[in-house]
Simulated scan of single mutants.
Amino acid sequence: MNGDEQLLRGRVYGHDHDDPDPGPRPGRAYAQLIGGPLDGLLLDVTGWTQEEIGTGAALPTELGQFPGGRALYDPGPGTSCAPGPGVTCRFHHRGDAP
């Protein structure tokens, strides 16, 4: 695991790297990001509809194949997130986009 990967593990996507508490917040729902440049991060999906969850996310990142591009994640066919707080589903890396 390289230094960037170690910094990301257990953090919520979008929280600043110097946030004193970059982890998940109580009462929020998260998708765990699997694979790709954001592997191990949690994505806050609180309030997302099942349709929004089904389309996944294109997340801006400097760590992917295209620095300044987007890492593409989705739950995969037929997968849905369980309702409620905590890690409720997993989004898998599907590639990168400029």
Rank of each mutant, 00 (worst) to 15 (best):
N2E: 10
D4A: 06
D4Y: 04
E5G: 12
L7V: 15
R9T: 09
R9K: 13
R9I: 05
R11G: 07
V12Y: 01
V12H: 00
Y13K: 04
H15I: 15
D16I: 13
D18K: 10
D19E: 15
D19Q: 15
P20Q: 10
G23V: 08
G23E: 10
P24A: 12
P24F: 06
R25H: 11
P26L: 12
P26E: 13
R28Q: 13
R28W: 12
A29M: 02
Y30D: 00
Y30V: 03
A31N: 02
Q32G: 01
Q32L: 07
G35R: 15
G36H: 12
P37G: 13
P37W: 07
D39I: 14
L42R: 11
L43E: 05
D44C: 04
V45T: 12
G47Y: 00
T49G: 02
Q50W: 09
E51M: 07
E51C: 05
E52V: 03
E52T: 05
I53M: 11
I53K: 08
I53T: 12
G56C: 14
G56F: 15
G56H: 14
L59P: 00
P60K: 13
P60M: 11
E62T: 14
E62D: 10
E62V: 12
L63N: 05
L63Y: 09
G64P: 05
G64V: 06
G64L: 07
Q65T: 14
Q65I: 08
P67S: 09
P67K: 05
G69Y: 02
R70P: 00
A71C: 01
D74P: 00
D74K: 06
G76E: 09
P77C: 14
G78R: 09
G78M: 09
T79R: 10
S80C: 13
S80K: 12
C81S: 09
A82I: 15
G84M: 04
R90C: 02
F91M: 02
H92D: 09
H93Q: 09
R94K: 07
D96V: 00
A97K: 08
A97G: 07
P98Q: 14
